[in-house]
Design a protein around this nucleic acid. Structure first.
Length: 425
RNA sequence: AGAGAGGUGGCCGAGUGGUUUAAGGCGCACGCCUGGAAAGCGUGUUUACCGAAAGGUAUCGAGGGUUCGAAUCCCUUCCUCUCUGCCA
């Protein structure tokens, strides 16, 4: 979240940022936050002063008793006792105000970077470039991946339906091998790029959910266990970034670079319809995630490097793709700047999002109290970044659809050793 | 899951209601000393909030309570260790 001091010191910047993000009633919200914070300061000052008096009285009593001055001590006790209820009242008032303030701050999204374009929806995103020839697919009569999955018996949605529910497919045979090959390929690539591989838990507690911003707002997007207060992770970003929660790292340790493969679980409540057939949108899917922790002055350069790394992955998979710069209305709540990578799906004739690379600046770091100590010993909030490198299902969809030949599906060269086959037939 | 023992600063560790303003040690930083270093000596060393500053408030796993006063007593809860049980 944005810190209250940042909001106070950069009011106009914050307001114009929130408007770019299309937050409704930004003025009223910021107004409320600042006046509530003024109230907090005033009340806390009062409380501290009364507490100070009470503390000094209590100390005097100790001395009086030691000196054997019992009657004076009794009198002082009465006096101090009266202060006590006053402290308690102010204390609970401060607590209420702080709670209210925190809830308001949770409602305020991160403010977008200068580079983020104006816009209200995905239509206003800016295409930075596209690569690969999509006209190649134009007049070919290609089967969509859901037909191919059935034809070659690579995945079974009915079986998933039977055993779990919609959106939980079974992968079979070469379909399963393709999944495993992709995961291994992505992890190997990430390791070569200097990311430390992490295998995190796929359940997280409530505090972790708050830290990376899934809670309290997006509670409905996560699966929540019934008999423990744990959530299934929607992305490896959550457990991996939370490794650093409440940590202060030394400046020399930064940057930190992690990668990890996990299954991801998303309820996707209410989003099922025509455009979500097959692998386009699932409740459970596999993803390799990359996470970086940086000093503020280096985070944007790092974001570019992460983006280039992910572009390279897609290029190696020989898929046509485009890179988008998300506009203010489409960028996520937590992010300051975000690139989306979309691959072209030759049969659906659509672009499919396979990666989001974002800089959260200090928004998550402030929520989770992640700091670094500079050489002079001063602490600062770090910047957190992450990106998908990559999410599997839509990559699989594009590989299948785009690789169709009369002899079967030919898979990208780079995956042959990982999968153990060249074609699916 | 049951029984027991614990959780104190960057680390170790003392502390069973009132100069605890958390002893002592280690580490770290700075200074003195030195030709330079070590040793020695001195000073400093959690975090957050309020304040221009002086200073104040909170913080001994977390949350409540008792008391004029809590690291210390009580309740709840989380975590760690040992033993037992169960288990891939």
């Amino acid at each position: 979240m944005l810190s209250i001091s940042f909001i106070r010191e950069n009011r106009d910047l914050v307001l114009s940022g929130l408007k770019k993000k299309r937050l409704k009633e930004a003025d009223a919200l910021i107004e409320e936050v600042i006046s509530l914070d003024n109230k907090r300061k005033k009340t806390q000052k009062e409380r501290d002063d009364v507490q100070f008096t009470a503390n000094s009285e209590a100390k005097k009593i100790g001395t009086l008793i030691k000196e054997g001055n019992i009657s004076q001590a009794e009198g002082a006790k009465k006096k101090a006792g009266a202060l006590k209820s006053e402290v308690q009242e102010l204390e609970s008032l401060v607590g209420d105000i702080e709670e209210e303030l925190k809830l308001l701050l949770y409602k305020i999204p991160n403010i977008p970077h200068q580079k983020v374009p104006e816009g209200s929806s995905a239509d206003d995103n800016i295409e930075i470039f596209r690569e690969g020839d999509i006209s190649f697919f134009e007049d070919k009569n290609l089967l969509p991946h859901w037909d191919l999955l059935k034809k070659y018996d690579l995945a079974d949605f009915d079986l998933g339906n039977k055993v779990t529910g919609a959106g939980f497919p079974f992968y079979k045979g070469k379909g399963a091998k393709l999944q495993r090959g992709l995961i291994q390929f992505f992890l190997d690539q990430a390791e070569q790029e200097g990311y430390l591989e992490i295998q995190p838990p796929i359940l997280i507690n409530e505090e972790s959910g708050y830290a990376t911003g899934q809670l309290p707002d997006k509670e409905g997007q996560m699966y929540h266990l019934q008999n423990e207060n744990y959530y299934l992770i929607p992305t490896a970003e959550v457990p991996i970034t939370n490794m650093l929660r409440k940590e202060t790292v030394r400046e020399e340790e930064i940057p930190l670079k992690f990668c990890g493969y996990t299954p991801c679980f998303r309820r996707e409540a209410g989003s099922w319809g025509a455009n979500v057939r097959g692998l386009n949108r699932l409740h459970q899917f596999d993803k390799v995630e990359i996470v970086e922790i940086h000093k503020p002055e280096e985070s944007y350069e790092a974001l570019e490097r992460m983006s280039e790394y992910i572009e390279g992955l897609i290029r190696k998979l020989e898929l046509p793709f485009r890179k988008l710069l998300l506009c203010g209305g489409d960028i996520s709540f937590n992010a300051a700047l975000c690139y989306d990578m979309e691959v072209y799906s030759g049969a659906q004739k659509r672009w499919l999002e396979v990666s989001s690379v974002s800089n959260f600046e200090s928004y998550q770091a402030n929520r989770m109290n992640l700091k670094y100590k500079d050489k002079s010993g001063k602490s600062h909030l770090a910047h957190t970044l992450n990106g998908s490198g990559l999410a599997l299902p839509r990559i699989v969809a594009a590989i299948l659809e785009n690789g169709q030949t009369k002899e079967g599906i030919s898979i990208p060269e780079v995956l042959v050793d990982y999968c153990g086959f060249k074609t699916i037939s």
